[in-house]
């Protein structure tokens, strides 16, 4: 069963095409890396999955539902690139509210909040206001809310943003651990090494077009690494120059 499906999806903003005829099937338990330079259409694809943007053509389904239907977002954890957190709220209050909205039973909320706070290393800061946290700690709060309720589908947009090397390693562990529990993961990232370590398939976007799609072995040619493949796909001239 596919968790996310794009069938001939196009997205226009006025006269500008942000995404051009995208077909994608993401099966349950898969880990997809969404790659592309800035403005390639990665965030648009995530917005379509979340129902924040409507396709101009084609159809998106999430867990078998139209993205506008709340059922599509059952068991979904989302970490946006631009993390909007209410600065006046305390860490545990904020995560607790997300636990309730995610459908965690009220009697289990406290235990679930404790679990993700401990997992993301926020135990000593649980009573702090979010506004006083550093960018890295705020990103951990973002991870905590995304991981609440043991999600079945994780959408992560630049998940390492603001994290130090230790935090980045921990974040990979949290994502791997979720994958081990059968969670389907979609990561949009500029960090190719991160995508290479966590994902088993790739979609490479350029100016709204899918320029490569498949398993890492299918996208990366023999004798090149993911960075070489990315440069070849995004900027063929630079890629050719680099290999000459």
């Amino acid at each position: 069963m596919s968790v996310i499906e794009f069938a001939g999806v196009r997205k226009d903003y006025g006269s500008r095409t942000a995404l051009e005829t995208m077909d994608l099937v993401l099966p349950k338990g898969a880990a997809l890396g969404l790659l592309g330079p800035n403005g390639a259409g990665k965030t648009t694809a995530l917005r379509l999955i979340l129902g924040m943007a409507h396709p101009s053509a084609g159809r998106v389904t999430v867990q078998g539902w139209d993205p506008l239907d709340p059922e599509a977002r059952q068991g979904l954890g989302y970490l946006p690139e631009r993390l909007g957190l209410p600065t006046h709220m305390a860490v545990e209050g904020y995560i607790g509210l997300h636990a309730l909205l995610a459908g965690v039973p009220e009697k289990s909320v406290a235990a679930e909040v404790d679990r993700v706070i401990e997992l993301t290393g926020l135990t000593g800061r649980r009573s702090d206001r979010i506004g006083v946290l550093s960018k890295g700690l705020a990103q951990r709060v973002g991870f905590a809310q995304a991981l609440i309720g043991d999600p079945k589908l994780l959408l992560l947009d630049e998940p390492s943003s603001g994290l130090d090397p230790i935090g980045m390693r921990q974040a990979r562990e949290w994502i791997s651990s979720a994958q081990d529990r059968g969670c389907t993961v979609l990561i949009s990232s500029h960090l190719l090494s991160e995508v290479e370590r966590l994902c088993d398939r790739l979609v490479v976007l350029k100016e709204g077009r899918v320029v490569a799609q498949g398993s890492i072995q299918e996208v990366v040619h023999e004798g090149e690494d993911l960075e070489d493949a990315f440069v070849r796909l995004i900027n063929p001239l630079a890629g050719a120059g680099g290999t000459q």
């Binding site: 129902g51 924040m52 977002r73 946006p80 631009r82 909007g84 957190l85 209410p86």
Partner: peptide
């Protein structure tokens, strides 16, 4: 304002209707 500060995106990623 919750769209401008980004928090609406996180609320609406939950299984709640608009």
């Amino acid at each position: 304002e919750i769209f401008e500060d980004g928090s609406a995106t996180l609320w609406l990623a939950r299984p709640i209707s608009r």
